[in-house]
Design a protein around this nucleic acid. Structure first.
Lengths: 208, 208
DNA sequence: TAGATTGTTAATCGATTAACAATC
DNA sequence: TAGATTGTTAATCGATTAACAATC
């Protein structure tokens, strides 16, 4: 549960990373200012919603001219606390875990996978990129010592819950779960899910 | 746009795959019946919501006893149209695309990647699993010929929009987009997004 | 039967949109 | 200045929850 600022709806927080991504892109394209209308057009969101969402955190724009992109970006990064680099623990070094570890997209967006764990003895000691795979039983100690708050779980569904329990006991407060299963976690732990099949199944309903 | 049944809210459709996943798991655990309360407890959703969601599609349960899992599962698979196998075209055979192609989780949940395309000449002709990478320029022809309706995009952000445009022109009606960019598509095309960074950034707000 | 649970209605809650004064 | 766009308020819309009769 948000131990945070005066009750911002979670659905609003959920849209901020999308805004941030669009702003970064606009900047790459050479724009310096934008407006709620332009952002809305790009994202398929109403301009009113964008203004309302942003207004929860302050007035970032100027009437008549809109938003300075660099400034709004900084502000959103601050709100989302990604104006720093978070260490992330990755559990699971199978096909999926290794793909996640190799993913280049985390850099410069606030995250760095700094350790990888796997329960299989034959994987321990091998490398993923420039990280050595460590035994799962070391995870609690390392997570606690380094004060790591974020983890990604890429283990089979059968093991995901016990892994989550261990990590949470060690101090993890947010989990990105790639295992196709809903996790039971305490109220003060956040979980996000990535299950490509769920995303696909959300679309087939609309096909004939 | 839903050219479908009497206006089911999209947010309801979005939960059905989660229910389906939980039912499959319950079945694996040996259960034969369940209730809206048990499902709700597992998923962190109210039992009322589950009953209301299901009621859009019919009465699948029995007062006093709940739902027969096998039956409810079949019904949901029918509603979601995943009681069949959908061919999927994958575009992009870089690290990410290859990981997606190797992912074993699609089988038995309604999907099979049946072709892989990449624009880079040095990738064309190489294999990913048992699929040969084909040149991007062949994609429209093959998608149209085989009547493929679903695609996954795993190309750099810079190329995602043009790839989407090409695929849609060739008949693709639903896209799972791994590129970190919002796509502009016609109203009758569905898009789902997977950007792990967005998921991570949705959680850091709540950390200190 | 008594207990449990569904399907559904009505009430509540929350999110989105429309509209506009303020102002750059 | 005239035109554009913000931030915000109020109105609308939609989703969730509570409650319960029906019934297995």
């Amino acid at each position: 549960m948000p131990s945070n600022v005066p009750n911002i709806p979670d659905i609003v927080i959920g849209r901020l990373p999308i805004y941030l991504r669009a702003l970064t892109r606009l900047q790459q394209e050479g724009h310096e200012v934008t407006s709620s209308h332009e952002l809305g057009r790009r994202l398929g969101i109403s301009s009113a919603q964008i203004r309302k969402d942003l207004s929860h955190f302050g007035g970032f724009g100027k009437q008549g001219t809109g938003y300075r992109i660099a400034y709004l970006r900084e502000q959103l990064e601050q709100v989302l606390k990604v104006n720093r680099e978070w260490e992330v623990a990755l559990v699971g070094a199978g096909d999926l875990g290794r793909a996640v570890a190799h993913y280049k997209g985390f850099t410069d967006r606030g995250f760095r996978i700094s350790c990888v764990f796997d329960a299989a003895p034959n994987k321990v000691g091998k490398s993923v990129g420039d990280l050595k795979i460590m035994p799962m039983e070391d995870a609690p100690k390392i997570v606690a010592e380094r004060g790591i708050k974020l983890a990604m779980i890429a283990v089979p569904a059968e093991n995901a819950q016990e892994v989550a329990d261990l990590l949470i006991a060690a101090g993890i407060r947010a989990i990105l779960n790639y295992a196709p299963i809903s996790l039971k976690v305490p109220d003060d732990v956040r979980v996000q899910y990535i299950d490509p099949v769920v995303h696909m199944q959300r679309m087939t309903f609309y096909l004939d």
